[in-house]
Amino acid sequence: MSIFVIAEHDNAALKPATLSAVTAAVAAGDDVQVLVAGSGCAAVADQAAKVAGVSKVLLADNEAYANQLPENLAELIVEVAGSASHIFAAATTTGKNLMPRVAALLDVSQISDIVDVKSADTFVRPIYAGNALATVQSSDSVKVVTVRATAFDEAAAEGGSASVEAIDVVKTQDIASFVSEELTQSERPELTGAKVVISGGRGMQNGENFALLEKVADKLGAAIGASRAAVDAGFVPNDMQVGQTGKIVAPELYIAVGISGAIQHLAGMKDSKVIVAINKDEEAPIFQVADYGLVADLFEAVPELAEKL
């Protein structure tokens, strides 16, 4: 059985979510190979070769893969990994964009966002915003799977000694082109990998008030998240959204400030180890999942928290 993991990277560094996908791949079988496709991305292949559990790294370095356009990448993956037993990738926006295209070209189903590997052909995945867990079995020749990164530990980034093999497969579709990218700049830890997350909701009232959360985040080394209400109201950019349709986080500590706790938000954070809710409405559903709840006006409690930490 050979298992391919599609590396996610920005042509310079491997994304941590790939390490979680490697862990899931190792749970499904041996001979885990990593495919690194990009442009000027040899450094990423070297990093992937050091990851524990990886037996081989394939490097497809070409301008055609510079921006990870799925139209080109899917064709590459089908040619390089199409006869593998499994193809895994992290369930990030990149993996979600790419993998169903790969699966359809191979005429197999894709299994999205798995949280557990029961065996080489049986996986567990959440449905209905995490309100049910489905165990699914695939009889397809190739199992195409995306992995929920927060459900698997990251494979050790050092300790492996895989060989890197350059492959010369160029697939260019010329039906789609990259125009531009606008990334949110932040000094803080990445939301999905942070140990502590503090999130604000509609109760924050405006974008300026998110500065209150920053003071707490600075003290705790936390990432800042948001509910859909806060994003839709324009308080913060959408890449900060935690929930069914945003990011899934599972930090050690999640502090929900001014968030009511709708089903769709809980879907993104209810696997956090410890949940704290600060809300002035004691009936808010968030208190039903919070380990520690403080019924208080956030505009008093949050500055006090920042000061006393």
């Binding site: 197999v108 189903s109 299994i111 049986t122 959440p126 449905i127 995490g130 309100n131 049910a132 867990l133 489905a134 165990t135 699914v136 079995q137 695939s138 009889s139 397809d140 500590l253 209810k270 410890v274 949940i275 704290v276 004691e282 208190f287 039903q288 999942v289 919070a290 380990d291 520690y292 709840g293 403080l294 019924v295 208080a296 409690a301 006090e304 928290l305 006393k308 930490l309």
Partner: peptide, 30 residues
């Protein structure tokens, strides 16, 4: 389809915790 759903189960429940009275108590509990 090559995909078969073997079972659908509710996720492990998360019980409600406690309410704290003050920021001090919250910090001390954490």
């Amino acid at each position: 389809s090559g995909l078969k759903v073997l079972s659908v189960e509710p996720p492990p429940g998360r019980s409600a915790g406690i309410k704290v009275e003050s920021v001090d108590e919250l910090i001390s509990k954490l």
